[in-house]
């Protein structure tokens, strides 16, 4: 009892001594997404059970970018759909942001492989769509923010154009702007650059790094591309197929800010090789045995 009052002032002193803004290590370790023993089983038309995802444990911390990579059918998109609230769990549990119920794009926003813009609305209205759904209408502030975001993704001139007048890359930029309209904490991206040509893809990857540096969103990214995963992520979760489960979790320690030159670093190739080995390793062993 006599020691307690002594300890408290000491603690406050320490707290005061620490500058409040830059404490990256503490903030980075604050979990924001958690999947524990998550499993998804589908029933096929014939009535057979198909396990898409088995016993997935993954914690994602605030402000980090995590990539899910793996072969087709490893359940990486399923994992993302669980977190988006589009896929119910068969077993296990998860929480995202504050819990399981979400307030539209203001908590968790999603970017799909295809831009998925509504063809009957112009670019600005498409960006405003999540605000309209959530609040019934878009306020002046929403519109100002939408224009700001279009500026951020380099589409300021295109606000009044219809989606079909835009190139594929521009459409995907618009869909990224749309995902940010309600300032979500978390961005779920399902192979967002998978449908783009190689050059546009590279361009958008760098844009995403810049957007992340500015907005500090937590990003969960599903991708087929190993180099994309290494370039963008703080951690890469490698998954194996049938049944889908987590195989390896790699901390990518490449200095930031990253850019095209990061690809030339020896560490970059080291990480890429490790992921490639994770994915293709077992298959090679099987071939040797046969």
């Amino acid at each position: 009892m006599t020691q307690a009052p002594l300890r408290d002032p000491a603690l406050t002193l320490v707290a005061r001594a620490t500058p409040p803004a830059p404490k990256p290590s503490a903030e980075r370790k604050e979990p924001i997404i958690e999947l524990s023993h998550a499993g998804v089983t589908f029933e096929t038309r014939k009535g057979e059970a198909l396990t898409a995802l088995e016993d997935l444990n993954l914690t994602i911390y605030r402000e980090e970018i995590v990539s899910l990579v793996g072969p087709s059918g490893c359940g990486k998109s399923t994992a993302l759909r669980i977190l988006a609230g589009l896929q119910p769990l068969s077993s296990g549990d998860f929480w995202i942001g504050g819990g399981k119920t979400r307030q539209g794009f203001s908590e968790v926003a999603i970017v799909f492989q295809r831009p998925t813009l509504l063809p009957w609305r112009n670019v600005l209205d498409n960006v405003l769509y999540p605000a309209r759904v959530l609040r019934g209408r878009a306020t002046k502030e929403d519109k100002a923010r939408a224009l700001e975001l279009l500026e951020l993704v380099g589409l300021a001139e295109m606000a009044k154009r219809m989606p079909h007048e835009l190139s594929g890359g521009m459409q995907q930029r618009a869909s990224i702007a749309r995902s940010l309209i309600l300032d979500p904490k978390i961005l779920l991206m399902d192979e967002p650059f998978g449908a783009l040509d190689a050059l546009t893809r590279e361009d958008l990857q760098l844009d995403l790094l810049e957007i992340h540096a500015r907005t500090k969103k937590t990003i969960l990214l599903v991708t087929h591309s190993i180099s994309e995963a290494v370039l963008l992520s703080d951690r890469v979760a490698v998954m194996s197929a049938r049944p889908g489960r987590l195989q390896d979790l790699i901390e990518v320690d490449i200095p930031k800010p990253r850019g095209p030159e990061s690809g030339a670093l020896p560490a970059f190739h080291e990480y890429s090789r490790r992921i490639r080995d994770d994915i293709f390793g077992p298959r090679k062993r099987r071939e040797v045995q046969a």
Partner: peptide, 14 residues
Amino acid sequence: TPSEMLDLARVAGA
């Protein structure tokens, strides 16, 4: 209606 559009509406809270 493309399923991705429906997904979008659902995630947006429609």
